[in-house]
């Protein structure tokens, strides 16, 4: 990509972000709530695809990190009288450390082990947290009482999205991003050109853990009442995967192309046919695998390339 193009996409990104930041001015309660959901998934899916896009490791750990973030805010504020912002500062660090440990244990092995490990991770943390809560801290409800409105949280998430996009932009043009692309192509070659493959993967995975925990912490005031079964819902991980793959992980802005329609679809299904939401997720996975293996963005680029060739 030339420097001129890069500058252009930066300007475009900035304009879109400003537009996104204006949503609270026009949106009412219902649409504000949907916008908040979209902002949340945009951050989660984009940071997910920074790691999983180039490496093809399917991480299902998002719910675990997200839950850790939300739960820490809940327990910190209810059980230890901590300030919301203090907990927001602590949560992502814990998420990052957790991701780091999981990364060094599983990322040196093949992709299957990693998927399986992350698959049950949220569930395991949930059962452990419930157990600790029931036996040691007493099963009190965890309240997150702040005077933040949905619009406030939304703005924080948009800022976080901007940071994630900038980080992604920087990673993509750095040696680290290049290393990840090589790893995704052929890990053996990657090692033989001098890349410490485990370290590169762990760095990115740690980053995604940091971001997911931060999102979980920031959005906690939205739910007011935190319980392990809610914040550690494994479904969240799958939705993030679907959204990111639906949009396409080949481009930094790919995931958001999947986030917006899928979030709206889910909203519609949950409101009207809530018993079918699992089935819809299943169909979404199948559609991605069989019809959109490179996501909507990849498909559009493919079509454009074809048209480009035929008009020449």
């Amino acid at each position: 990509m030339s420097h001129e193009n890069e500058f252009k996409s930066l300007v475009w990104g900035a304009v879109l972000l400003l537009l996104a930041a204006c949503v609270p001015l026009v949106a009412n309660g219902y649409w504000m709530s949907i916008a908040l959901t979209i902002a949340m998934f945009t951050v989660l899916a984009t940071s997910w695809s920074l790691f999983s896009g180039p490496t093809h490791y399917i991480s299902l750990a998002t719910a675990a990190f997200f839950g850790v973030g939300g739960y820490l805010v809940g327990t910190g504020m209810s059980d230890y009288n901590m300030d919301f912002w203090t907990m927001v500062a602590i949560a992502p660090v814990v998420g990052a450390v957790l991701a780091f440990l999981i990364g060094i244990a599983t990322l040196r092995l093949s992709g299957v082990y990693f998927v399986i490990f992350t698959l049950g991770l949220a569930e395991m943390i949930r059962t452990m947290v419930s157990w600790i809560q029931n036996n040691f801290t007493g099963s009190r409800g965890l309240y997150v009482l702040t005077d933040l409105t949905e619009a406030d949280i939304y703005i924080y998430l948009v800022i976080l999205a901007a940071v994630v996009y900038l980080a992604g932009w920087w990673i993509n043009r750095s040696r680290l991003g290049f290393a990840l692309r090589i790893i995704g192509n052929d890990e053996t070659v990657a090692r033989h050109v001098g890349i410490n493959t485990a370290t590169s993967k762990v760095i990115l995975f740690t980053f995604s853990g940091f971001v997911a925990a931060l999102v979980g912490a920031l959005i906690a005031p939205r739910y007011t009442y935190i319980e392990p079964n809610g914040v550690f819902s494994p479904e969240l991980s799958f939705i993030v995967v679907i959204m990111a793959l639906l949009g396409g992980t080949g481009r930094l802005w790919g995931p958001i192309v999947g986030v917006i329609p899928f979030a709206l679809l889910q909203e519609y299904i949950n409101a009207n046919y809530s018993s079918y939401s699992t089935l819809v997720m299943g169909i979404a996975f199948l559609v991605i695998v069989y019809f959109l293996p490179r996501g909507v963005v990849g498909r559009i680029e493919q079509l454009l390339a074809k048209r480009g060739r035929s008009t020449w």
Partner: peptide, 28 residues
Amino acid sequence: IARTFQLVRVLPGLSVAENCIAGMVFGH
């Protein structure tokens, strides 16, 4: 120490130039 492989291993997702650059970024 750099090597080639018995069964040729190029990086299909990268351009020709990037394939070559891959060898000079992280190693010796």
